[in-house]
Design a protein around this nucleic acid. Structure first.
Lengths: 113, 113
DNA sequence: CCATTAATCTACTATATAGTTATACAAAGA
DNA sequence: TCTTTGTATAACTATATAGTAGATTAATGG
């Protein structure tokens, strides 16, 4: 085995943080800039306690930073790098879809011949 | 919100496949080339039924390919791209560790002064 | 055909966690 | 101080899934 599990575990944990739709929604809502919890709730449509929990997980993972400001708390993307990851995956997935539709076209061409 | 959840969900699902230590172990064991299930079991130390399930998940995600060959079944990395993802994350995590140790050094320097 | 080997499948248990509701806490103003 | 507002937390439910044991299927050799 190239890598021992001990080296792989942190990577798996990082992916796990990014593997929940709600957390990706929260991250996307922060892409346009720092926001407080209320704004994030409004933008994502998620429940308040739920957003709070997800923000805690994201902060513990070092992906967002937390700065209390008066009554409210502002969160901000601390690692824009995650959007690169998401785009890489997204590109790969759309490449697949395109390849599939290409195959469908070829099949139709064969059937017509 | 920049992206609708419908566009984010497949990305989350992809990350979810990569978010399990055992699956990353399986993928790493395949990095050196095509292997049958028994070989993967030996290399990873995971249970047989467990490996079989993980391989099914990886195959359904399009990350590995499956080719029966006689009695045994050989699996192979279908998207080497995943190792790029893992390395990106690994590099980021080790960068963090290094930054942390730098901070520790600075703190010690301050305390001595 | 039977036995053996490799892999998959089924059923189950244990655990983790997403989401929710209600509560607690903290800051700011009346 | 009391109230209001914005967050966080606690407790709970529901669900998903990792891991396992045992049955099942498929290919090969005797």
């Amino acid at each position: 085995m190239a890598l021992p599990p001990s080296a792989l575990a942190p990577v798996a944990d990082y992916f796990k943080v990014l593997s929940e739709l709600s957390r990706l929604q929260v991250l996307c809502s922060l892409r346009s800039g720092s926001k407080n919890v209320t704004e994030i709730i409004e933008e994502t449509g998620l429940g308040q306690a739920n957003v709070s929990k997800h923000l805690k997980i994201l902060a513990q993972a070092g992906i967002v930073s937390r700065t209390p400001q008066g009554v409210s708390v502002y969160y901000e993307i601390a690692e824009p790098f995650i959007f690169d990851l998401c785009e890489l995956v997204g590109d790969r997935l759309s490449m697949r879809l395109e390849a599939q539709s290409q195959q469908l076209k070829q099949l139709e061409g064969l059937r017509r011949a």
